[in-house]
Amino acid sequence: MEARIHLPQGKQKSFLEAVLRKSELSVDQLAVYCTVTPRTFRDWHREKYFGPHKTFEKLARDFRVTLPKGETLTPYWYVAKGASLGGKKYLEMYGPPGTLEGRKKGGRVSQERRRQDPLRYKALGCNVAKEFIVPAPSTELAELIGVFLGDGGLTSHQATIYLSALVDREYSYFLAGLIQRVFRVKPSIYERINDHSIRLAISGVYFVNSLEDLGLKRGNKMKNKIRIPKWVLRNKQYATACVRGLFDTDGGFYFHRKRSGIYIGWCFTSYSESLLGDVHNVLQRVGLNAKKEQEGRLYMYDLWSIERYMELIGSHNPKNIAKFQSHLAVREKK
C-alpha cells in the first residue's frame, strides 16, 4: 500500500478539476491513466478518500498543474486513528483495562448481556446464571428464613448455612431435604475436619436475589440489623415456623442443677437486638413469656413453658428433641 496525501478541504477537488481541464481527458480516460477504476477517481474528486501521493505528483508533473501542499500519510496511517477511537469506545464501555474499576465494569457489562440473552451465551459454552423461581409463602419457607437468619449468610452469589459436625449432622440432612423441597435446588454439603463444621451452600445470583426479595440481607447481619420479614410476622403460623428455624440453629436446651434436682432450660441467642425483639414478640403472641436476663439472650426456665413451646412450635433438630425427651423420661421415673 502506498502513501497518501492529505490536502486541505476543497484542494483535492480543485486540483483534479485543474488536471481534467489541462489534460482535456474525460474522467474515465484519466482513471485509466491512473490505473484505477472510474469510480475510484470520482471518489477522489468528491474527496471521499485521500489520493495516492505518487499518483498525484505524476498528474501534477505530466499535466503541469501545481499540487497544493499537504500532509503525507504513511501506509496504514488509519490504524492508529482507528485504534484510538476503538480504545476510547472500550474505555467508555468497560473502563480502564487492567484496573479493578475496569474489570468490575467489564464484568457488569458481560453479566448484563448474559441476562439479556442467556440461551446464546449458554450455546457458546459460557457460564450463565441459573434461573430460579421464588416459592410461594409457606411454613416450610418461613422455617428456612429462620434458619438463614440464624446460622446462614448471603454473599453476592451464594447462600450458606453453617452447622456443627459434632451435634448437627442429622439436622444438616433434614435441612438439605427441606431446601430441596422448598426451593427445588440441591444444596452442596461440605465438611471441614479442622473446625468440625458442616456447610450447606446454594450458589446462584438469582437464588441470592430471590432470598433478598423474601426479606433477607447479604453481608454482615449485625450491621444490617436483621429482622424477621414482615410477610412472616403477619401470619401466626409462618412466624412460629420462623422462630423454630431460629431456635434450631441459634438456640437450644440446656440442663442446670439445683438443690432439688436437674432442670431443663430453653435459650435463644442473638446479638441483633431487633431480631431478639421479634422472637420475643412472637413467643408472647402464643402465650410464652421468655425472659431477657443477659445481653443477646432469651430464656425460659419452667417446664410448663418449655413443654408448651414444643407443643406449639416444636423442633426439627434431633439434638433438641433428644434433650427434651430425655429430660421428660427422667422426670417420669421420679
Rank of each mutant, 00 (worst) to 15 (best):
E2R: 01
I5V: 09
I5M: 01
K13I: 04
S14V: 10
L16K: 00
V19Q: 02
L20R: 11
L20F: 13
R21V: 07
D28I: 13
L30K: 02
Y33Q: 04
Y33L: 06
P38R: 09
T40M: 14
F41E: 01
R42V: 12
W44E: 09
F50W: 13
F50N: 10
K58L: 11
R61I: 02
R64G: 07
V65K: 07
L67S: 02
L67C: 02
P68C: 10
G70K: 06
T72F: 00
L73R: 01
P75R: 01
W77M: 01
V79R: 13
A80E: 14
A83I: 09
S84W: 06
G95V: 04
L100M: 04
R103K: 04
E112G: 06
E112C: 06
R114P: 01
P118R: 07
K122V: 00
K122C: 00
E131H: 13
S138D: 06
A142F: 11
E143F: 07
G153L: 01
T155K: 08
Q158G: 00
A159K: 10
T160F: 02
V167R: 04
E170G: 00
Y171F: 15
Y171R: 03
V182E: 12
F183W: 15
R184N: 14
P187N: 13
P187M: 10
I189T: 14
R199S: 13
I202S: 01
V205D: 09
R218I: 05
R218H: 05
N224M: 08
I226Q: 02
R227F: 08
P229R: 09
R234W: 06
C242W: 00
G245R: 04
T249S: 14
S260I: 09
G261R: 14
W266C: 11
L283M: 07
L283Q: 03
Q284H: 10
Q284S: 10
R285G: 06
A290V: 02
Q294K: 15
G296Q: 09
Y299G: 04
Y299C: 04
M300Q: 03
Y301S: 12
W304R: 11
W304N: 09
S305M: 09
S305E: 12
I306C: 02
L312G: 03
I313C: 08
S315M: 11
K319D: 08
N320D: 13
A322K: 15
F324K: 05
S326W: 01
S326Q: 14
L328D: 00
L328I: 08
V330L: 06
E332V: 07
